[in-house]
């Protein structure tokens, strides 16, 4: 594993390898990865979310990257399928994104 990537693991055990910079769009993940003391999360760069399902976690990762693109001046829309809206909002609330 590279130093500047983190692995986010969904409820079903699917893994998403994203850049640390992208994952830190989420305040919750940022706190997990940067808090002092040697937490397992900080050391291995792996965070498991037993409460977030795979499609939602993937959407969240896409959002991280969209957010980075948007802040660097690219104006595209972030499409959200209506059927996942509620679950996505609950996850976003938990992750402070």
């Amino acid at each position: 594993m590279k130093e500047d990537t983190v692995k986010l693991i969904s409820a079903e055990g699917f893994e998403f390898v994203v850049d640390k910079k992208a994952a830190m769009v989420s305040q919750t993940i940022r706190n997990m990865l940067t808090s002092p003391g040697s937490f397992a999360e900080t050391e291995h760069g792996e965070v498991t979310f037993p409460e977030i399902s795979t499609p939602i976690l993937e959407k969240i990762c896409q959002y991280f990257y969209w957010s980075l693109q948007f802040s660097s001046g690219k104006e595209t829309e972030f499409h959200i399928e209506p059927e996942i809206t509620l679950e996505l909002m609950m996850a976003a609330n938990y992750l402070h994104t």
């Binding site: 699917f14 998403f16 390898v17 850049d19 993937e58 990762c61 990257y65 660097s72």
Partner: peptide, 16 residues
């Protein structure tokens, strides 16, 4: 950052 792609294998997705 210009773009990203999602590379998938088994249960893992790499955002590149």
């Amino acid at each position: 950052m210009a773009m990203y792609i999602r590379v998938k294998r088994h249960k893992t997705t790499y955002f590149i």
